[in-house]
Design a protein around this nucleic acid. Structure first.
Length: 649
RNA sequence: GCCGGCGUAGCUCAGUGGUAGAGUACUUCCUUGGUAAGGAAGGGGUCAGGGGUUCAAAUCCCCUCGUUGGCUCCA
């Protein structure tokens, strides 16, 4: 044991002299035994290490527990190894792909050979994992040479690990061993398997090796583990609650939309209430756009095939799309429109444009059709026919940034009014290694990409940048929101495009009396109305903001003797553009209230003998209950005030 | 498109080879009731579709369609 000292700096800024070779665990022990029991890993100079790995030089050390994101991910990664150990014990000869931690838990990709893995077997694996966890096997890190590593997996016959090893440099390879299981792994891991107290394997799915559909499909087993049984119970409860928000379930229950096999998969049918919701969203957007200088245009649902050949969409997507519509005339073909932009380009072109006209902003709630892969369809979030709150801004190059910023403001306004605070702004750029996926030259792309980056920076937007996510004609700024089950969906999108103006030969006459090419910005704050409604439903669990709610009010007469008075109230609401209906079923008031609560109707107006005499209504609010009695006029004023408040910003 | 699961009444679901069920919704009647389910009666299913095994199939097998969890894709 060396008695050389090193300096350890803790997150609170305090410094400690410790022996060289001290581990995170030992540092924790020096603070408190309780902490030491809970330490899962250590962050050493920003890098996550095993808590028992010796620290050889001065370092900033943060001890990671279950309360830290990195602590959890280490825990789950170790759990993946535990599951792999259980799998090898139960199914000798299985081959393993990769087994990382994910946002909520972990998975491991497994090749069971010719065997079909049954979901029912998950419980057996869970039991085995718990059994192995009780052994408290330590996770032991080993540096190993590449040749030894290759020899090990050649002997084991695991081609996936050999494939992974190919990409690794000699001298950087580590194995981790726990119990009877050895895995190629960078680490880090928790001290031993005994930390894992509760296990739930959630589901199985197919996943291509290395995410490439040309490769073999492995069985991916998803799971989650916890250091306490109670935390698993809570997690499972939360999952159940999340399922109750599923827009597919609420959409049916609240009578918003439906699907029909006969109409076709992925083609939503909007019911009256869903349509009302859509219309409210559309009016909201139109109003916001009117203020921002947009003009509404309307274009047909089909267009000549040549239109999309010009735009490049046909070449890029034609073979995977709804196929052209033939006419009686030989060789004449139309396409169901997958995009509105080519139509809008033609509107731009219908007359010569002056620089004084720009920017021109054409907006359309355009319904488009795309042949999405059958396996991709999902409720309203991924459909084959949907309505975009689309608009195309045609502007001069020096107006791009300003216009882009205005669109960011519009998107943020929408998110703010609807309470979407938890979104990710993603800058989607070209994949530098795969340029043939895109049209257009480097110069235009570079200009477009920097316009987005600058505009986002200028707005102080927190962004993540993802290479390879750009549209084929230009980079994008996408706004992503999670659904009830944590799946991320793209809502708003803003795209800078130098390509389509070129392809459609769009022009304007500049101050110099010369022809110039405008730049296009494609943008859709909702993205698609269908997806937006889906995410909105899950976000508010079907309890829509008053101004959006399809049923704003139901009037509940105590008995049929008061339907006439109820009708008077309804007419007053009608005059004030408030949506209300009378529940005049032959049911008791308790029943009517219950049904209105279940249908999540924001307000109930109860009218009986007392109300009729006093010319009042008893107001009951969804979830909150009785608000007392109001005169009808007072209530209308109160109601309108609530709506005005929620639309302020 | 690929891998796995699922498909019984409008909805939620029971029914493991022997005459299709429950709750709820719906219809009719009784009840005219004061803040989350009043009572009674009734109608409703080619058990997704097609083929096969069997004396007999909702049930076992195959195909198709739809749906679902992922993967790949996403203008």
């Amino acid at each position: 044991m060396s008695n050389q000292k090193i300096k350890i700096t803790l997150p609170d800024g305090s410094e400690r002299e410790m022996d060289k070779g001290v581990s995170g665990l030992q540092i924790a022990l020096g603070i408190s035994e309780g902490l030491a029991r809970n330490v899962l890993a250590a962050k050493v100079n920003g890098e996550i290490w095993d808590s028992n790995r010796p620290i050889e030089q001065d370092a900033t050390v943060q001890l990671l527990t279950w309360n830290d994101k990195e602590g959890k991910s280490t825990f789950w990664h170790s759990s993946a190894h535990l599951m792999a150990e259980a799998l090898e014990a139960l199914y000798p000869g299985v081959k393993l792909g990769i087994g990382p931690s994910i946002e909520n838990g972990f998975y491991y990709d497994v090749d069971f050979g010719d065997r079909t893995f049954e979901g029912a077997e998950l419980e057996t694996i869970e039991a085995k994992m718990i059994e192995l966890a009780r052994n408290k096997s330590e996770y032991i890190r080993k540096d190993i040479s590449k040749s030894e590593a290759i020899a090990y997996f050649e002997n084991k016959g695991d081609e996936y690990k050999l494939d992974l090893l190919e990409g690794l440099a000699d001298g950087t390879i580590t194995f981790y061993e726990q119990g009877n299981f050895v895995d190629l792994c960078r680490g880090p891991h928790i001290p031993n398997t005994g930390f894992i107290k509760a296990v739930k394997l959630l589901n199985i799915a197919g996943a291509y090796w290395r995410g490439d559909e040309k490769n073999k499909m492995l069985t991916r087993i998803y799971g989650i583990t916890f250091p306490k049984a109670k935390e698993l119970q809570e997690y499972l409860f939360m999952l159940e609650e999340a399922k109750k928000r599923d827009h597919r379930k609420l959409g049916r229950e609240l009578e918003l939309f439906t699907f029909s096999e006969k109409v076709g998969m992925g083609l939503p049918l909007w019911l009256p209430k869903g349509t009302l919701l859509r219309e409210r969203l559309i009016n909201f957007m139109k109003k916001a756009q009117d203020k921002s200088g947009y003009q509404q245009v309307t274009t047909p649902h089909i267009g000549h095939k040549a239109l999309y050949e010009t735009s490049g969409h046909y070449e890029k997507y034609g073979k995977d799309s709804f196929q052209p519509i033939a006419t009686p005339n030989e060789g004449e073909e139309f396409l169901l429109k997958p995009m509105n932009c080519p139509h809008h380009c033609e509107i731009y072109k219908y007359k010569p444009r002056s620089y004084k006209d720009l920017p021109i902003r054409y907006a359309e709630f355009g319904t488009v059709y795309r042949y999405e892969q059958s396996g991709e369809l999902h409720g309203l979030t991924r459909v084959r026919g949907f309505t975009q709150d689309d608009a195309h801004i045609f502007c001069m190059p020096n107006q791009v940034k300003e216009e882009f910023i205005k669109v960011i403001d519009l998107v943020l306004h929408v998110f703010k009014v609807l309470g979407f605070n938890d979104y990710t702004a993603q800058i989607s750029l070209r994949d530098p290694n795969n340029r043939e996926k895109y049209i257009g030259g480097d110069e235009a792309w570079n200009k477009a990409e920097s316009a987005i980056i600058e505009a986002a920076a200028e707005k102080g937007l927190e962004t993540v940048t993802v290479l390879g996510e750009a549209a084929f004609y230009g980079p994008k700024l996408d706004f992503m929101v999670k659904d009830a089950l944590g799946r991320r969906w793209q809502l708003g999108t803003i795209q800078v495009d130098y390509q389509l103006p070129d392809r459609f030969e769009l022009e304007y006459i500049g101050a110099d009396n010369q022809k110039h090419r405008p730049v296009m910005i494609h943008r859709a704050p909702f993205g698609s109305l269908e997806r937006f409604v889906a995410v909105l439903i899950e976000h508010c669990a079907g309890n829509f903001p008053l101004w959006l709610s399809p049923d704003q009010i139901t009037i509940l007469p105590i008995s049929e003797k008061f339907t006439e008075y109820a009708e008077k109230i309804r007419m007053l609401l009608d005059e004030n553009d408030i949506t209300g209906f009378i529940d005049n079923r032959d049911e008791k008031i308790g029943r009517k209230i219950r049904d209105a609560e279940v249908k999540k109707i924001p307000f109930m107006l109860i009218v009986g003998e007392k109300e009729q005499e006093e010319e009042k209504v008893s107001v009951r609010k969804h979830i909150d209950g009785d608000l007392g009695s109001y005169t009808p006029e007072e209530f209308v004023k109160y109601f309108k005030g609530l709506i005005a408040d929620s639309l302020k910003n």
